[in-house]
């Protein structure tokens, strides 16, 4: 009896030692990451209490006075804030659909190109815009739209018409921004779809051809169903970012032009401009917190909905 108990104790010790031999090095490896996330992700999360405070720099975040919901009251009364919300949601709704449909169409088309070498050349060129920074994009857009030496301006004057000062005309910009966004992202986003499409076994298509299905029917009944899980996941990720906008696109491409604000002012641009130009930490932090909370709720809710529809597709 005695020896048996001893053995089990020894076994447990051995087990513990074995575990420690794995756990300690692994824990050490995660340490830089743990510290990183703490400093640059979790600390800013704690910093969101700023939204309920009147921030005084020398008192720091935690020393500043509590204000309750005052900052949010200011936010609700601010018409620029509502303009930013409306713009953000409108652009994101359009981008949600176009950001899925365009890359999918491109991938389906690219897959049908018979000469695979030519298809690779197309793909290299189509993803090129992704590798150009938005600052450079803004230079290109300026070269096309500028009223002095822009391509369109010279084209118009060549036809005997007045050039348009695009940077003062807000009406055109929703379309310009849509074009820039699609130009930059479509080719690159199509990579994932193309990967899935090339992975679909030919047998499905062969069977469909024997049944007399047209190419279009094959796309609708075979290709798109195979892409569905990916579409769902990408859509959740996009919906989770619904209150966020691409700062580079909305700030840098229109060059933060004052006259264009009604169509380029998204939440991120608003937060930046309030923080940096009017130095209003309280208002901008309230807006930033609302943005984060809405994003969080959206991710959790959309994931829950997808979980109810098809639990295989949800992310957690």
């Amino acid at each position: 009896m005695q020896s048996a108990r001893k053995t089990s104790k020894e076994l447990r010790n051995m087990n513990l030692r074995r575990r420690a031999r794995t756990d300690i090095p692994l824990l050490l490896m995660t340490l830089p990451g743990i510290v990183f996330f703490f400093l640059f992700n979790y600390m800013p999360m704690a910093g969101t209490v700023l939204a309920f405070k009147y921030f005084i720099p020398n008192r720091g975040i935690f020393g500043s006075e509590w204000l309750g919901f005052k900052n949010f009251q200011f936010m609700i009364k601010n018409s620029y804030f509502w303009m930013a919300v409306k713009n953000t949601l409108t652009y994101n709704s359009v981008f949600l659909v176009s950001g899925i449909v365009f890359p999918m169409m491109l991938a389906i088309g690219l897959n049908e190109i018979r000469n695979k070498k030519v298809a690779r050349v197309y793909q290299s060129l189509l993803i090129m815009p992704h590798f150009i920074s938005y600052v450079v994009v803004s230079v290109i857009v300026f070269a096309i739209l500028s009223a002095d030496s822009g391509i369109i301006a010279h084209f118009l004057t060549g036809m005997g018409r007045e050039p348009i000062a695009f940077y003062n005309e807000q009406g055109y910009w929703p379309i310009f921004l849509f074009i820039v966004y699609s130009w930059k992202g479509t080719g690159y986003s199509s990579i994932i779809y193309l990967g899935t499409i090339t992975g679909i076994s030919d047998e499905y298509y062969e069977a469909a051809v024997i049944d007399g299905a047209s190419k279009w029917q094959q796309i609708v009944h075979i290709t798109i169903p195979f892409l569905k899980p990916m579409i769902v996941i990408l859509a959740i990720m996009k919906v989770g970012n619904f209150f966020h906008s691409n700062f580079d696109l909305f700030y840098q491409v229109p060059l933060n032009s004052g006259l264009l604000q009604p169509v380029t002012n998204t939440i991120d641009v608003f937060v930046y401009n309030t923080l940096r130009d009017s130095n209003d930490v309280s208002l901008s932090s309230a807006v930033a917190l609302v943005q984060s909370v809405c994003g969080f709720v959206l991710v959790v809710v959309t994931n829950k909905i997808i979980d109810l529809i098809d639990s295989d597709l949800s992310m957690f």
Partner: peptide, 9 residues
């Protein structure tokens, strides 16, 4: 899932 956002950072 949740980020502190620009201002807090």
């Amino acid at each position: 899932l949740f980020s502190g956002g620009l201002v807090a950072s």
